[in-house]
Structures are given as structure tokens and as C-alpha cells.
Design a binder for these strands. Structure first.
Lengths: 341, 341
DNA sequence: GCCTTTGCCCAAAGCGCTTTGGGTTGCCCT
DNA sequence: AGGGCAACCCAAAGCGCTTTGGGCAAAGGC
């Protein structure tokens, strides 16, 4: 069933039927009702390919996930963000086009999306400290929104959490408990968020005349085994930390495993504080929070990013939309005063 | 730059340029080379909306994720599967359309996708024991592939792991170690995979004249806190289990937390065996496997499912493609003989 | 009573591609 | 010389929708 057939069956023109379905005022309410009823009865839905060609809008937003080697962003964070964004897209009538890039040529993928007009906008996740994607998208005149930010963060739209503040606060919390040998188990060094978190960590230490201990700072993709291995190495090495700062709950789980194997009790023998993205399947808040954590829902961020990107698509001339979210610090059972030796 | 402009600039017809770009034989190789060079120089890419309208193919495959309340499938498993499938789609020139359904009306979403022709095929994940989606897709004459299976598993294409066999084997392994009070921390009862795993568990027990203990069987969405809470309740209750069988690594992590809090050492005081989907960020194989586990890569499954679905789209008349994957059992450090009391 | 406005509807022209159904050469064959 | 056949290329007809630019009544203004 297409528009022509529907129009014929109603003895109306395609124009009128199209207008009736799309809510234009030039059609009598009685006619509109008749059209809507017939469309429903016939299970008619306009062909999206034809509609998109005619309107020139793709009604689609692209997410590009790089899958290259070590940098692979295939972490749970991307999934929950996607869910949040997808909710909004669905509500607003947009499709979500997910594109995996295996050959490392993310820029090529962007060019392709722009050239063949298959998306109206692009969501950018996990920017590097210097990220070429932003300049490219500006050059392509493609609306985009960055989750995170990079460089001076001027001239484009983004949404980010206050990473520096969050990690300064978390570090302060540990310092207040008397810890001085604090380890930072961070994400990969190239990412902007990892650099900001390191800065927060450094600032808090500096304020008390301390500095990060090089052997207690680690950077890598945020997996459980990375958390486990770094903690194991640090705990078994000289000058072991009395507290850990972890960039994700996944890492913290690895830390907990290493601690457990060594008979160390969280919150007593060793302290852990982590950043919690409030992932759906890693709820940290059953019967009171387990890990002490700075928290910010990645899913909520996905929702908001989607809303902002759609606003940007509707009016590309508007000034950049920038949002900085503060995080909350929830005290759980994984932190306690520094044990006196 | 569109086809007409490109053709004009080359003093060729749109027909010839289109054929040159799409590899048809009616055009001289010299002409083809000239066209390709010009297209490249002009950064020309055919408009995908127009192409799709003209060819009648969407070159898109739909994944529909239900987000309704408890049944929400937002787990890490869906993400890794998506990655695997997306790799193949990209390679084969297909787009991945991801659709989140928040109002519970998955069937409506399917009807919509079919009616407006925005996808050529649909991937179905995590089927319920009786899943209406399959009959619906058959009725809609929409090519689809099920990851998992349901009912008698006849007449449609699917790819599944041998759940019954896997859990029978895992249970046997624990029985061989002398365990008899074994707990099963399963997924939600409605899912087909959960029912098959229960069956495998029951069969292994029955072969030794045993039966599942009702207070040692749990069903719920596979989160870490669910694992933690069920283990806590069972360990603190009467007749605590000496071994656990968990339907995912995430659950097993929750079990480990509960065990750790109670001072129980894995593989000595308590045994855990789980099913491991080989999630990228929960590598269970660093320095030898940690959890004893039945394993099967969900990402590889995603890849294979995508290949099979594309084959199905290319030839919808072919007989159903059905694949049953066996799993491997890897022995780790989380299992040991039943402690003699 | 005539002209303009308003309300409602239609025919037809795109959107940018693919594909059908020819045309036009030039070459070989009889 | 003329017919047949490749080899190349083109004009034009869709694909199914939206949207422009009217047209035709009935209603309102002088």
C-alpha cells in the first residue's frame, strides 16, 4: 500500500492525503479524519526512503564507534549512553544509525556519512585531548555534539561532567581520611577525560604539598583485568598504596578482586573510591552504596546529548550548546581512615 | 555534487556514470577509470536516500531493543553482540538501525519497520520461551534471524549455543568435585536460554538421583547486585550451597563479593562456575582463567548472526539457517572440591 | 451585483538515483 | 555492399513521497 493507492481508494489526490497525514491546515477536519481512518485500516505507513528523499532530511543521527586495536571504546559505557540517546531519538522520530569502524578510518566514515547524506547529525563520544574529529565535522558543516570535550572547548556543542572537580573532591576525601599514598587507576592517557581526572588528582595533592607517585599512576582501557593487574602490581610492590582512585566501577571491581586475594578488607585495610557511571547492571546502590563513588548517570547524559543534538539540527545557526554537569559524591563502604601501621 | 553534475562535468550521461560507478560491464574501462577519477576528485558519493528509493532496498538491518521495566535487556551482552554484528554489516555495506522501544510495543515497532520499508531484515535477540515476535515477523514476510531460539525451533533461522549441554556439563563438573548443594543463579525465567540452562542443571542432578533445591534456584535480570543479593541470602540462610552456577560473569562478580564479605575463599570454601560471554572488558583469562566457566564469545555470535542474516536477505527463499554452537569449559581458580565439614 | 478573500483540493514538478529500452558506431562476415 | 553483431552510450521512465502553484467554489465586502 502506497500513497497513490491510498489516495485512489479515497477518491482524493496524493497531495490532500499527504497533507492530511502530516497535519497541514489546508484540509478539512472531516476529510482528515476519513484519511486517518483509511490509513489505519490499511496499515499504511509512508515509505521512509521516499519521504527522506523528498524532504531532504535523513531523520537519522549517526554514532560512529571505532574498533581499532587498543583504543577500542567497546566498553559498557558506550552501551548505556546509546540507550539513553536512543530513547530520545525514538521519541523525536529520529533513527539511530550505528556504524562500527574497524580500519581506524573514523574520519573517512564521517566524510562518507556527510557525502551520502545518510545522517542529519553526528554524536561524538570519548574525545581525545586533541581530537581531529571536531575540526573535520566543522569543515563538513555537519551538526554534531560531543560527549566530553577537548582543547579549549570553544566554538562547538558539548556536554561533559566536571572531571577535574570530581577527582579533586574524591582525592580530598581520601586525604581527609589520612591517606597519602594514593593510586590513580585511570583510563587511557589520550582521552581528555583521563587528563582532566589526573589534573583534579594532582591539584588536590598539590594543595597539601604532595605530588602523585609515578609508580602509583596507571593508564589503560578500563577493563576489569586492567584494574586487577595494576592493583596486584602496586600492592605487591614497594610502597604500596593505602587507597585507590579508579576511573570506573569496572576497574574498581578488578581492584576489589586483587585486594580480596590478598586478604585486604575494603574500607579498613584498603580504600577504594571510583567514578560510577550508574550502569544498569552494575548498580552500586543496593542496601546502601558499596563503593564510595563520584556519580553521574551516563544514560541521562545520553538522553540530554540527544536532546541537544536534535535542537542543534533543527537550528544549526544557534550558538553552541554547552553543559557541564557536576557529579555527586556518595560515601559507601569501600573507604575508611588510613590504617596506622 | 550529485550524479547529474558529475555526469555533466564529464560530458557523459547519468546512466553511464552510474554504471561506471557500480561496476556494470556496458562501459569501457577507459571511461570507467575517467569516471572514478572524477568522482574521487569531487568527493562524490551517491546520495543514499535516493539510491535506496531507486533500488527498493534499504541496505539497513534493524535491531530492536526493548527497554520496558524489569525485562529490560540493557545488559552488556547486547552491546558486545551489537559490535560483532556491526562489524559485519559495515564490511557488507549495510547500515545498522538501532531502535529503542520504551513503551513495550516491540511488535508495533516491527510493524512500523516493515511498513515503512526502512530495513531489509531484523535481528531478534533474547527470545522468550514463547515469543510472539517470530510469528509476527513471519507474517510480515520480513527476513529475520534469532540469536537464541524458542519453542520447537523449526521453520526459521537461528543461532544458539548448546545451553542444556553447557549447564549439564558444568553441573557434572561440580558434582564430580563432590558438591551436592548447588545453587543456580539464572537469568529471568521467561527467557528461553534460562529455561534450557535450568534443564541442563536438572538433568545432571537427576542422573545422580538428585533434584534442584528450591531455595537454591534464583531467576532475575543478570546484574551484579542480583548476584550479590541472592548469594548473600543463600549463604546466610539454612542449608547454604557449597557451589554456585551462574548464568553470567556479571552475576559471578556479585557472588564473589558476597563470598568475600563472608570470608569465603573461592575454590576452597566455595565454588563458582559461570557462563562467560567473553565480554571485552571482563576478560576472564588474564594469567589463566579466574572463574571456571563455560565460554562462548557473544561477539563472534554477533558476527555470525549478521553473516547469516545477510545471506537470508540475499536469498529469502532458501531454507532456514540454523546453527548450534557448543561451548568450551575452562577450569579456573573458582572451583575446588566440596569442603568436608 | 461584482470582486476579493478564504477554504479546500488537485496536477504536476521535483528529490537523486537506477534501470529499461533503445540508438549509434565500427567491425566482421557473407 | 549490406546485414548482423558487439561495444558503448543515452533519454526517459520510474521509485514514493513532499511541495509549489494554482483552481474552483462558497463566503464576505463594497
Amino acid at each position: 500500500m502506497n500513497l497513490k493507492q491510498l489516495a485512489d481508494s479515497l477518491n482524493l489526490s496524493q497531495t490532500t492525503v499527504s497533507r492530511a497525514l502530516n497535519g497541514y491546515p489546508e484540509v478539512r477536519e472531516e476529510t482528515r479524519a476519513r484519511v486517518l481512518a483509511a490509513a489505519k485500516a490499511a496499515h499504511y505507513a509512508p515509505n521512509s526512503r521516499a519521504r527522506r528523499l523528498a524532504t531532504g532530511r535523513a531523520m537519522t543521527i549517526g554514532h560512529v564507534i571505532p574498533l581499532t586495536g587498543q583504543t577500542e571504546m567497546v566498553n559498557p559505557i558506550f552501551a548505556d549512553f546509546l540507550i539513553g540517546a536512543g530513547e530520545v531519538y525514538g521519541r523525536e522520530g529520529y533513527d539511530l544509525l550505528l556504524s562500527m569502524v574497524t580500519d581506524g578510518d573514523t574520519e573517512g566514515a564521517f566524510r562518507q556519512l556527510a557525502a551520502n547524506g545518510s545522517v542529519d547529525g553526528i554524536m561524538v563520544q570519548a574525545p581525545q585531548a586533541e581530537d581531529p574529529r571536531i575540526a573535520l565535522l566543522q569543515e563538513l558543516k555537519m551538526p554534531f555534539l560531543v560527549h566530553g570535550r577537548t582543547g579549549d572547548a570553544k566554538g562547538y556543542s558539548w556536554l561533559d561532567i566536571a572531571n577535574v572537580r570530581a577527582f579533586r573532591r574524591a582525592t580530598d576525601f581520601l586525604l581527609d581520611l589520612g591517606h597519602t599514598r594514593i593510586a590513580l587507576i585511570n583510563g587511557q592517557a589520550g582521552f581528555d577525560f583521563a587528563q582532566r581526572r589526573l589534573r583534579g588528582f594532582e591539584e588536590a595533592l598539590a594543595a597539601r604539598g604532595l605530588a602523585p607517585l609515578p609508580h602509583l599512576v596507571a593508564n589503560d582501557a578500563m577493563t576489569e583485568s586492567y584494574g586487577y593487574l595494576s592493583a596486584a602490581a602496586m600492592l605487591d610492590g614497594p610502597e604500596p598504596p593505602t587507597a585507590f582512585l579508579a576511573s570506573s566501577v569496572i576497574i574498581a571491581i578488578g581492584l576489589r578482586r586483587a585486594a580480596g586475594e590478598r586478604g585486604l578488607r575494603l574500607g579498613r585495610d584498603i580504600s577504594i573510591i571510583c567514578h560510577d557511571d550508574e550502569l544498569s547492571y552494575l548498580n552500586n546502590d543496593v542496601g546502601g552504596p558499596d563503593f564510595t563513588a563520584t556519580r553521574s548517570s551516563i544514560r541521562a547524559a545520553g538522553r540530554r546529548c540527544a536532546e541537544n543534538l536534535i535542537a542543534l539540527i533543527h537550528d544549526p545557526e544557534q550558538p553552541p550548546i554547552q553543559e557541564l554537569w557536576d557529579v555527586t559524591l556518595t560515601v559507601g563502604r569501600s573507604t575508611g581512615p588510613c590504617p596506622t601501621i
